[in-house]
Structures are given as structure tokens and as C-alpha cells.
């Protein structure tokens, strides 16, 4: 049986990589590798996961220098030479080993007014939406975010500007801005404008390249840039 050489980050902001030897198996995922280390080699290893099938967004880590969802990343696709280096997500504080503190990431969703604000009550009938409308198709293209933090971890602008809302929060704001039921348009445009908002994006597109759900936050952010600019020109911001 062949063996994988795996270097895993241990510690918090200060720490070091620790090397492990892990048996290679068929259809093995990176999460399988981390789980093997914790269960068979070192039970003190801290990491986070839940669903194991690419739905919950909790198992993202930096694998060989690239942020990925580990439960759906096969070892074959990232460790052709039999070596893996696994670290916590970048741009987030490290709590311990592979576990990051996601509070700032989700707080920014709130700061971007990422909460739906409709006008109907539970006593009203359902609002009828045309699934094929241009606005709804734009929402559908961006709505399946699982909040894994891969885009946020891959974003250079987040690294340079700690207040920048980041691709996931801005993508969420975009889906609400294009949702015809939403009533918080003006408030949301103000939330995503300014130094920490959509215009800070440099269109590097790392978020779109690495999003495991194949969402393009860059496209949504470009839409936000246009909408905010129009509002500014009209004096509505």
C-alpha cells in the first residue's frame, strides 16, 4: 500500500507544520486524510466538518496552498506526487490547528444587509415570480452559496483591507438586490458602497475560480458596482 506524506498545521497564529504518514486509499478525499490523522495518529488534532457531502460548507481548508472544500476534494486531484500540505483557511483568525474563527466572515454578511426584507406577512399569499425572468436567473446563478469561506480566504483584497466585505457577503447582497420581492434596496446599496464595499474589488477573480459551487461572486460584485454607481450618479446613495 502506498503512503501519503502529509504536513498539517499545528497551533494557532503561531505554530508549525507536523508531518504524518497516511495510507493511500482508493477514492480518498482530503477530509478522509485529516480524519485518519485525528482518529488513528493524533487525537488532539482540531478540525471542523459536518455533512461530508459538500452541503454544509464547514470543512474548507488550505490544501497545497489553495483553499478547497476538503470533503469533495479527492487526493488524486491535488497530490499527484503523494504529498499534501494542509493548513487552515487564510484571511481568518486561527483558533487551533485547522479550525478558523468564522465570526468576522459571517458578521460581514450582516453588514452587507444580507438578510431578506420582504413586504408581505405570513397572512398574505405567496408572491408569484417568473423563473425565467432575467433578474431571477441572475439570482439563481448566485444563490447556492454554502458559506464555506473559500472565496473569502482566496481574496487578495480581504488580505489588504480587513474591512472589505468580501466575495460571499457581496454575492449575498447581489442576490437580494436582484430579488424582486426584496424591499431594502436603498439600504443595501448604501451597505455595499464605500471603501469596504464592492468598488474595492480588483476583479482578480480568485473567488470565482475557487468557488466549489461554481458561483461567480465577481459577476455579482460587477453588478453591484454598476448599481451603486448609477445610484451615486442619480444622487440616491
Amino acid at each position: 500500500m502506498s503512503v501519503l506524506t502529509v504536513r498539517v498545521w499545528r497551533g494557532a497564529e503561531q505554530g508549525a507544520y507536523q508531518a504524518f504518514e497516511v495510507p493511500r486509499r482508493a477514492s480518498q478525499t482530503v477530509l478522509d486524510v485529516v480524519t485518519h490523522i485525528q482518529r488513528a495518529l493524533d487525537p488532539t488534532l482540531a478540525y471542523r466538518f459536518a455533512c461530508r457531502v459538500g452541503m454544509c460548507g464547514s470543512c474548507a481548508m488550505t490544501v497545497n496552498g489553495v483553499a478547497r472544500w476538503t470533503c469533495r476534494t479527492h487526493v488524486d486531484s491535488v497530490a499527484g506526487d503523494g504529498r499534501l500540505e494542509i493548513a487552515p483557511l487564510a484571511n481568518l483568525p486561527v483558533i487551533r490547528d485547522l479550525v478558523t474563527d468564522m465570526r468576522e466572515f459571517f458578521d460581514k454578511w450582516a453588514r452587507a444587509k444580507g438578510r431578506f426584507s420582504g413586504s408581505r406577512t405570513r397572512g398574505d399569499d405567496f408572491e408569484r415570480l417568473a423563473p425565467q425572468s432575467a433578474a431571477r436567473r441572475e439570482v439563481d446563478a448566485a444563490i447556492e452559496c454554502i458559506g464555506c469561506g473559500v472565496c473569502y480566504s482566496s481574496c487578495d483584497v480581504v488580505a489588504w483591507n480587513a474591512n472589505y466585505l468580501g466575495p460571499a457577503a457581496l454575492n449575498r447582497a447581489w442576490t437580494l438586490l436582484r430579488d424582486e420581492r426584496d424591499r431594502a434596496r436603498a439600504e443595501r446599496l448604501r451597505a455595499v458602497a464605500g471603501d469596504a464595499g464592492c468598488h474595492a474589488c480588483h476583479t482578480h477573480m480568485s473567488c470565482s475560480e475557487r468557488c466549489p459551487k461554481r458561483i461567480s461572486p465577481t459577476a455579482g460584485i460587477a453588478g453591484l458596482k454598476r448599481e451603486v454607481a448609477r445610484a451615486a450618479l442619480r444622487g440616491e446613495l
Binding site: 448604501r190 458602497a193 464605500g194 471603501d195 464595499g197 468598488h199 458596482k225 451603486v228 454607481a229 445610484a231 451615486a232 450618479l233 444622487g235 446613495l237
Partner: peptide, 12 residues
């Protein structure tokens, strides 16, 4: 700078 000012800088 105001939000409008920041956005207008981007337009410029």
C-alpha cells in the same frame, strides 16, 4: 469621504 464620493471616484 462620503459613500457617494467614493462611488463617483470609481466612475471617474
Amino acid at each position: 469621504m462620503s459613500l457617494r464620493g467614493e462611488a463617483l471616484l470609481w466612475v471617474a
